[in-house]
């Protein structure tokens, strides 16, 4: 068991845990943060996406011992921010949500993408979301949601 300190949604937290335990399990079990979901457990589907130091990562692939001192943001944190609210609202307006299981991961991927490309092209959005699988929407409405969020970000 190791003592591991990192920042979670802006607050410093310390946990005692085996270092190889998956960040996904730590978030869901120790912090009751269930926005990140397990869809595959092998980094293929993106349902467990969180931000690590501002970039989207698969939390099922991250051993918690490797994130000492890192800044982790989950959807529970992002949804309180202006950017998070804007993406969520754009998803609601664009019909981007169907069964919803992939949606939290999509929102996190969108946040990471928009931080890097504030005004992405459709091709950049598709590339940015290419690690997040969805079986309901066929993606078009999600892509539109991200583009809408980027426009609202500029006050358009």
């Amino acid at each position: 068991m190791d003592s591991i300190t990192f920042r979670l949604n802006g607050t410093e937290v310390t946990i005692t845990s085996p270092g190889t335990r998956r960040l996904l399990d730590v978030l869901r079990e120790d912090f009751s943060m269930t926005a990140a979901k397990e869809g595959c457990g092998e980094g293929e589907c993106g349902a467990c996406s969180v931000l690590k130091d501002g970039r989207v990562v698969n939390s099922c692939m991250v051993p918690v011992g490797s994130i000492q001192g890192c800044e982790i943001v989950t959807l529970e944190g992002l949804r309180e921010s202006e950017q998070g609210k804007r993406i969520i609202d754009a998803f609601v307006q664009s019909g981007s949500v169907q069964c919803g299981f992939c949606t939290p991961g999509m929102v996190m991927a969108a946040a990471s993408l928009l931080a890097e490309h504030p005004r992405p092209s459709e091709a950049e959005v598709r590339e940015g979301l290419s690690g997040n699988l969805c079986r309901c929407t066929g993606y078009d409405a999600i892509v539109r949601g991200v583009i809408l969020a980027s426009r609202e970000g500029e006050g358009l």
Binding site: A36, E38, E76, I88, G100, T103, P104
Partner: peptide, 23 residues
């Protein structure tokens, strides 16, 4: 005419709880 889905916000905000999310 399209309207916002009633389930969209809670799902997009990660509030909706699926069976594995409920202790």
């Amino acid at each position: 005419r399209s309207v916002p889905r009633v389930d969209a916000y809670d799902k997009a905000a990660g509030i909706t709880r699926y069976i594995a999310d409920i202790p």
